[in-house]
């Protein structure tokens, strides 16, 4: 919403006022989290019903952040989440875009059936398949990397890759890629084929360079999904070694009295990487929301 240059001054002022008000409303939870992360439990509750809740006033402390690292082991969980997110997004971009390329640009028997199945998959929530998936990965042998070198483990459970591989192929990402690839003129492909290019070369040299916006969209949406993973690691990763960031936060709720200051510090630290990514890729992020019709 941007006031037009031709709008009257009062109208523009009203619109700006509305936007500022909305910005304050949207900033409220973030400010509360940030300010509370610098306060003790008592101070948080003492200030909660006044504007002091949003202001860094009163006795402030960095102890909550220290505890997030020392007690909360956030460094380890953060590294796990970064690794899981980067690898799953990287693999996902390759796998899903290739799948979409095959669906959108190549002719093969059964393509329409595959596309229909893909659309059907879009409406199946993860919660519906989490238990069957758990049963599957529990019995899948995998490769472990321990102190004694590479070895085989009898289950995918409690590993980093159990949080990556099941999420690499993603129906929604394939669908987004498919919709975008479909609109690229086929004449480019035909010209390349005439020059002797293979489908893979068409994909690499024509489709990928023409599709940066959709790659950005999928990267952002997939990265947010992976960063915020909670249910799956909760049931598939009992140990602390491969535990991601969001599940790690649960430890602060364990005691009878929740350490809200530490929860807020942990939440702030969890949000910062996403916030930095948002600021850096703001342009792409807005486009992705507009292009996909999906909020992150």
């Amino acid at each position: 919403m941007r006031p037009s240059q031709h709008s009257s001054l009062p109208l523009r002022l009203a619109l700006y006022a509305l936007m500022v008000l909305l910005a304050v409303v949207f900033m409220f939870p973030f400010l509360f989290m940030l300010v509370s992360s610098l306060k003790s439990n008592d101070a948080i509750f003492a200030d909660v019903s006044s504007w002091r809740a949003l202001l860094p006033v009163g006795p402030l402390t960095g102890a909550n952040y220290a505890n997030a690292f020392l007690r909360g082991n956030i460094g380890h969980y953060l590294a796990n989440s970064v690794l899981i997110t980067v690898v799953s997004v990287g693999l996902g971009l390759v796998v899903n875009s290739l799948a979409a390329f095959a669906l959108a640009r190549l002719e093969w028997r059964g393509k329409q059936v595959a596309l229909t199945l893909l659309v059907i998959l879009l409406v199946v929530p993860f919660e519906a398949i989490s238990v069957p998936l758990m049963l599957l990965v529990a019995k899948l042998p995998g490769i472990g990397f321990g102190g004694d070198g590479v070895h085989v483990v009898r289950s995918w459970l409690d590993t980093l890759y159990v949080q990556v591989l099941p999420f690499v192929a993603n129906a929604f990402s394939i669908y987004l890629f498919h919709q975008f690839f479909r609109d690229i003129p086929k004449d480019f492909d035909d010209a390349a084929y005439v020059d002797g290019a293979t489908p893979l070369q068409v994909y690499i040299h024509i489709i990928v360079p023409s599709s940066r916006p959709v790659f950005a969209t999928v990267t952002i949406l997939q990265a947010l999904t992976m960063w915020n993973q909670y249910l799956w690691p909760l049931i598939a990763v009992p140990g602390e070694g491969a535990r991601p960031l969001m599940v790690g936060m649960q430890q602060f709720f364990a005691a009878r009295q929740t350490a809200w200051g530490e929860v807020m510090a942990y939440a702030t630290l969890s949000t910062v990487p996403v916030l930095i990514a948002f600021v850096v890729f703001q342009r792409w992020f807005v486009r992705s929301v507009i292009g996909s019709g999906v909020k992150g």
Binding site: V131, M134, A138, L157, L234, I235, G239, V247, F253, A254
Partner: peptide, 23 residues
């Protein structure tokens, strides 16, 4: 020992039992 988040402890137990991976 493995210390699991209390918030999802019951879900972890049920899932582990279904998958035959109980401690």
């Amino acid at each position: 020992p493995q210390f699991l988040p209390q918030g999802g402890y019951d879900q972890s137990i049920v899932a582990a039992s279904l998958a035959g991976r109980m401690p």
